[in-house]
Amino acid sequence: MTAYAIAVLRPTPPVHPEVLEYIERVQSTFEPYGGRFLSHGRTGEWKEGERLGDVVIVEFPDLERAQAWYASPAYQEILPLRTAHIPGELVIVEGVPAGYDAVRTAGEMRAAAAA
């Protein structure tokens, strides 16, 4: 099942040279795991809540490869280049299966709450 690495980052000018190095190197760390950018540094149009930062979304074929990428020596080597200069959050989340039905999920939640 597809998985996503989703980051919300709050860069502040000026951009530190180490951040530029991170950006130049990051794609090569996730490509061996089948990762690809879906969104990179887009501010988006925040519809609810306060603007949290710039959004980065990387898609992976499955949760195992997403987790393997994050733990990989190649990514761990460059991670401090970003985290030392840009605060933010990153989550790895599994997508839903084909044919997912939110109505069924709500029904299961109702049944669990009633039990």
Rank of each mutant, 00 (worst) to 15 (best):
I92K: 03
G49K: 00
A112Q: 10
A3Q: 00
P14K: 07
G88E: 03
T2I: 07
G99I: 04
Y75S: 07
E48F: 13
G88K: 01
F60R: 13
P14G: 01
A71L: 01
A106V: 11
G41N: 00
P17M: 13
L38E: 09
V56S: 01
L9Y: 05
F37D: 00
G44P: 13
I86L: 01
I86P: 03
L38N: 02
A102I: 02
P87H: 06
D54K: 03
W46C: 09
A74V: 07
I78N: 00
E31P: 02
P97V: 12
A3Y: 06
G88V: 04
Q76H: 13
S72T: 08
L52P: 01
E89H: 06
L63V: 11
A113K: 03
H16P: 07
T29N: 12
E94T: 00
R42L: 06
R110G: 02
E77I: 08
P80D: 15
R110H: 04
L81S: 05
A115C: 04
K47R: 03
H40Q: 12
A74I: 03
T105V: 14
I23E: 00
T2V: 11
G107D: 08
V103T: 12
S72L: 14
V58P: 00
E77T: 15
R110K: 03
G53H: 00
Q27K: 14
S28D: 13
A114C: 06
R82D: 02
E108R: 08
Y70W: 12
E48C: 04
E59H: 03
P14F: 15
P73Y: 05
E48Q: 07
T12P: 00
R82Y: 01
I92D: 01
